[in-house]
Amino acid sequence: MSGAAPGYVAILSAVLVKDLRAELRSKETLATMGLFGLVMTFILAFGFTADPATNRRVIPGALWIALLFAGTLGVGRTFAREAKDDAFSALILSPAPRSAVLLAKMIVNFCLSLSVMVLVTPLLAIMLRVDLLPSLGPIMLMLALGAGGFAVVGTPLAVMAVNARFAEVLLPMVVFPMVSPVLIGGVKGTSVILGTTFGDDGVGGWIQLMLAFDVAFGVGGLFLFERMVTE
């Protein structure tokens, strides 16, 4: 039995499997986030329901607010597990490439917030009586890019937030303005898809912007993570 420097992909999948297994066993994150998604759907429906034409105009905003809140809940939760008995220290004290650990965490957060949106999107469509079915694919793509943007920025900041007092208040305060380009792009892009706004270059420009955001901050975070977690 000898220790060879573990490979990037091996670490990535090990951390993902570990998180998935822990999640399936406790189910706490999925349960709380699922219920939270339901509650939020009702609140948003109460807040925004109007005539059909107006509903079609406001549903992008409702979807993206839902994503923002789901994402905030998710990034806080996934890191709480690492912080509980300080297993995170053991994780980053292992020879595993630290950026692989961060990337795995980003993917977990991305999946969590996207799965909440898979629940919320059809429910909102039913409650606000907007037929999203014809444009479901593009809308989910936008939401995925948004969830990605939230994950790449929110995950490293959530890791850092354990050091601060009022972490649970601070985190949204810090992350929301940071992801504003993605939020703007998402809301506007979704309206373009639904035909309630017309941009100069359609939805493509927004997709480009969000993709660029996800890649830039994802790569930046991975690059800096080593320096971030060293005390």
């Binding site: 220790g3 573990p6 570990k18 297994r21 822990a22 297993a87």
Partner: peptide, 19 residues
């Protein structure tokens, strides 16, 4: 250590972290 995992799973996980 991770409280949701079993003793064995914890060690298996860290074994993978150390390659």
């Amino acid at each position: 250590v991770y409280s949701e995992l079993t003793a064995r799973e914890n060690l298996q996980f860290f074994a993978r972290m150390f390659g």
